[in-house]
């Protein structure tokens, strides 16, 4: 089998989530086809999505729920995504994967789960969140800290509404620029400010973080001050994945493949990768 050969798929539906961000639903042409790993995806894994004639790019899977489609939350930012936003429904695309390690859901069992999302970083963490909700009794507290510039940029609004109302998890929003007509209750500022005042059980909390790189250093510092264990803090890294199988070399961080060994690394691992994320 050629792992580099995309499976033909169709983009069946897409809907706008925010300015330049949309949710794409994809379906493999062969309903019995399985990805190279031969199993369903784990939260935090990604797929390689091909747009014929433009190329291929990595996108994390944003759901854990078993639905009829593969859902990817994508921002219009590069050549592949620009073309993707122009495509009509029911157009041909290619899919490979899922790839990567994903978040260690088994390591989180019995522990409080703290999810820290910045902007588009909510997409992969949504799959962790859904997974925890599906296996609710296996986990302790579930806390989502979600930071954004403006509430207009909030992704998955229906989900957010439901999560905020739900007793199954705590949701804290951090909005840097509040506006008078904002829908959701939120703190003004960045995720760090919310994190500072959270009461956490240091030795029983696992954190999963995804967001813009500038967020990682300060978040790591706060979690360290809260005495979380570096082996219980997980960051998802964005790099240039091309092959997805650890061969092409582009996504290497300190010569480790983000596409195979990552994209999720613990703060302890990040230290050895030369990333300044000591927790």
């Amino acid at each position: 089998m050629n792992v580099l050969l995309p499976l033909s798929a169709h983009m069946v539906h897409h809907r706008k989530l925010a300015q330049d961000v949309a949710l794409f639903q994809l379906q493999l042409d062969d309903p019995f086809a399985i990805g190279p790993s031969g199993e369903n995806h784990r939260p935090g894994q990604f797929v390689m999505l091909s747009v014929p004639g433009v190329g291929e790019a990595p996108f994390s899977i944003c759901h854990a729920a078993h639905i009829d489609y593969l859902e990817l939350c994508i921002r219009r930012t590069g050549s592949v995504t620009r073309r993707l936003f122009e495509l009509g429904e029911n157009t041909l695309v290619g899919l490979r994967g899922p790839f990567g390690n994903g978040f260690p859901m088994e390591k989180m069992v019995g522990k409080d789960v703290l999810l820290i999302a910045g902007g588009l970083g909510l997409a992969p963490l949504r799959s962790v969140l859904q997974y925890v909700l599906q296996h609710r009794e296996s986990y302790g507290r579930l806390i989502l800290v979600y930071g954004m510039g403006r509430q207009a940029e909030a992704l998955f609004r229906e989900d957010l509404e439901y999560w905020i109302d739900s007793t199954k998890l705590d949701v804290c929003l951090a909005v840097e620029h509040p506006a008078p007509k904002d829908l959701f209750p939120a703190d003004t500022g960045h995720v760090g400010m919310v994190l500072e005042r959270l009461e956490l059980t240091a030795d029983n909390t696992v954190a999963a973080i995804c967001g813009p790189p500038v967020m990682y250093g300060p978040v790591a510092k706060i979690l360290r001050s809260k005495r979380l264990y570096p082996e219980n803090v997980f960051f998802s890294f964005e790099r240039r994945m091309e092959c997805g199988i650890g061969h092409c070399g582009h996504c290497a961080i300190s010569c480790r493949s983000t596409c195979q060994d990552g994209p999720v690394f613990s703060a302890w691992e990040a230290r050895s990768l030369g990333e300044p994320l000591e927790v």
Binding site: N2, L4, L5, P6, L7, G53, L92
Partner: peptide
């Protein structure tokens, strides 16, 4: 690696 056309990706 592969070819593609309107029908899909081909080995």
């Amino acid at each position: 690696i592969c070819t593609f056309d309107q029908k899909g990706y081909h080995p």
